[in-house]
């Protein structure tokens, strides 16, 4: 005789739960599927609604590659994403370390100012930033896209929360073991925070990768990054859906790759962390 464990979820509940999750994941995956499905149709069939693209064709990709230097665009976008994410992580890490591990005068006020910048809408800082970049001569350059985004309040906020729950005794131990505050950051804090840093890094890199508006302002005369490149397929007479979807499909690939690579790293780091 078998007995149901007391208090466990009943099979009806389990099935219902899985059903909801399945539907949700379908909802998330479908637009991406449709993007790739459309991009792989024969150029004449792009408006077809058949769920399976048949016959398959790579003409849209050829078209897209011909009209734009997609490889250069991807490279530029990659540079912007990586440098922005790296800069934000670095600034966030140093600021969060200071806020979490040190006591200094006006600490609370300075922290509130940091967080406050998060609440200021982009539209309010857009024009002053633009004017500043113009004076610095950084318009129409990738540096102009990256520099104003080097510090993010979000990064400081998230990392500070992580560091607040970081065991202080580890920092004390590092100092007793002969590390200064600075070397303790790199030998103890950063390795132990790897999962959080990876997660935040992914978030920041993808945000920078997907950024459209700011690059569109700074790089008005060129299609240096891929999100601007997509623009060129949208015209007043309608959109050129085939190559548009193909370019978008290509633009998504690095993001998927990044996530796949770092996701393994994240899981691994979680498993290996010996924190109680």
């Amino acid at each position: 005789m078998t007995t149901e464990p007391v208090g466990g979820p009943s099979s009806v509940h389990r099935i219902a739960g899985h059903l909801v999750l399945g539907l949700l994941s379908l909802l998330c995956v479908f637009p991406i599927y449709w993007l790739y499905a459309t991009s792989l149709r024969v150029p004449g069939d792009v408006s077809e609604l058949s769920p399976l693209p048949w016959p398959l064709s790579t003409d849209n990709y050829a078209d897209a590659l011909e009209k734009n230097d997609v490889a250069a665009m991807l490279l530029n976008t990659g540079i912007v994403a990586v440098l922005s994410a790296f800069g934000q992580l670095l600034v966030g890490l140093l600021a969060a370390y200071a806020f979490a591990a040190w006591r200094f005068p006006l600490q609370r006020l300075i922290y509130l100012l940091f967080v406050g910048t998060w609440l200021v809408p982009f539209q309010a800082t857009m024009l002053p930033n633009y004017v500043l970049l113009a004076r610095l001569g950084l318009l129409e350059t990738l540096a102009g896209v990256i520099v104003p985004n080097l510090c993010s309040a979000l990064g400081v906020l998230l990392l500070r929360e992580h560091l607040k729950s970081f065991p202080k005794e580890l920092l004390d131990a590092a100092r007793m073991d002969g590390r200064s505050s600075w070397t303790a950051l790199w030998t103890v804090v950063v390795p132990a925070l790897r999962p959080a840093l990876a997660a935040l890094g992914i978030l920041l890199a993808i945000t920078a990768w997907n950024e459209y508006f700011w690059p569109a302002m700074v790089l008005q005369r060129s299609n240096a990054v891929v999100q601007l490149g997509l623009r060129s397929f949208m015209g007043t007479e309608g959109n050129d859906w085939g190559p548009l979807m193909a370019t978008a499909g290509l633009a998504c690939l690095p993001v998927f790759a990044l996530y796949l690579v770092l996701q393994r790293h994240i899981v691994n780091a979680f498993v290996r962390s010996g924190l109680k």
Binding site: P167, P191, A192
Partner: peptide
């Protein structure tokens, strides 16, 4: 020139 043993041991989890 002092070494300390902590209550929580404070071992570096990544090493």
């Amino acid at each position: 020139d002092l070494a300390m043993v902590f209550q929580s041991y404070a071992l570096y989890p990544h090493l």
